[in-house]
């Protein structure tokens, strides 16, 4: 733990390595979940006729909210599992900003702590305000 908190451990290069790894793991995790959900989806509904995507109806609450997706995914609902993978995919770049924030904090780079916080607040605003606007 002491090593992780020391500045030497978190030199610029290390943060870059860490961000690179985070992005890769994020994409691999997301695509694995999506693949799993996709296979179950095809087993359950593969023979059903293709939904008419020609007309836009939008997804129901179970597939658009955090709690809805989690509930559906843990009930082993195929579409819920796919949406969980989609959420992990979207969360990956957001988590990357958090990692950058940690990096700039350890470097004591005040200017970039502020810049990173601004970007994070925009993301937060977008996530929370998404439905209401």
């Amino acid at each position: 733990m002491k090593k992780i908190l020391s500045k030497g451990f978190w030199a610029d290069q290390d943060i870059e390595q860490l961000i690179g790894q985070l992005l890769r793991y994020g994409v691999v995790t997301a695509s694995t979940i999506v693949l799993l959900g996709g296979i179950i989806y095809l087993i359950q509904l593969g023979q059903a006729p293709r939904p008419s995507y020609h007309q836009f109806v939008g997804e129901t609450a179970g597939y658009t909210t955090f709690s809805g997706i989690i509930t559906n995914a843990f009930q082993f609902n195929a579409k819920g599992i796919i949406q969980l993978g989609v959420m992990v995919l979207i969360a990956t770049p957001i988590l990357r900003i958090v990692f950058s924030l940690i990096g700039f904090t350890l470097e004591k780079d005040k200017l970039y702590i502020v810049i990173t916080l601004i970007v994070l607040s925009v993301m937060l605003f977008s996530t929370i305000g998404g439905l209401k606007i």
Partner: peptide, 12 residues
């Protein structure tokens, strides 16, 4: 995502 533009059947 919250507006329902992301369909699992297309996304996967």
């Amino acid at each position: 995502l919250q507006r329902g533009y992301m369909d699992p059947g297309i996304a996967f």
